[in-house]
Amino acid sequence: MLELSSKELQRAVEELSGQKVFACYQCGKCSASCPFAAEMDLTPRQVLEYIMDGRVEVLNSNTIWICASCFSCMARCPNGIDISKVMEALRQLLLRSGRDQLDLLKIPEADLKEIPQIAFIAGARKLIG
């Protein structure tokens, strides 16, 4: 995990995302809107609560890698928090310290032929620093 204090985490997330995380009143609509919430170890709402509580271990959560920026959460957030940007900020904190999540070289030849390029480029943008 990154060596970050609670305050540093909060500041970094707010600066990178440009979002007011502390406006969250924990209604849970983001989790309920997320088509991937069932695959996540922390629900999107819990990710926000972890940040507000200064828990740096949020960076260990698989949630931030499963989030595919579909923007369903932000479209319904009553407090206008773009949670997809919060997730991106958390990803970037790790990616910028060299913690890549995807190795393009390991993708099978058959997939390379079949899958649209946009999937690889998007994946690389989200999962490689």
């Binding site: 209604c27 309920a32 069932a38 709402r45």
Partner: peptide, 11 residues
């Protein structure tokens, strides 16, 4: 109704 029981952290 689709939602999250936030006290349980469960959908």
């Amino acid at each position: 109704l689709v939602g999250e029981n936030i006290l349980l952290g469960e959908l």
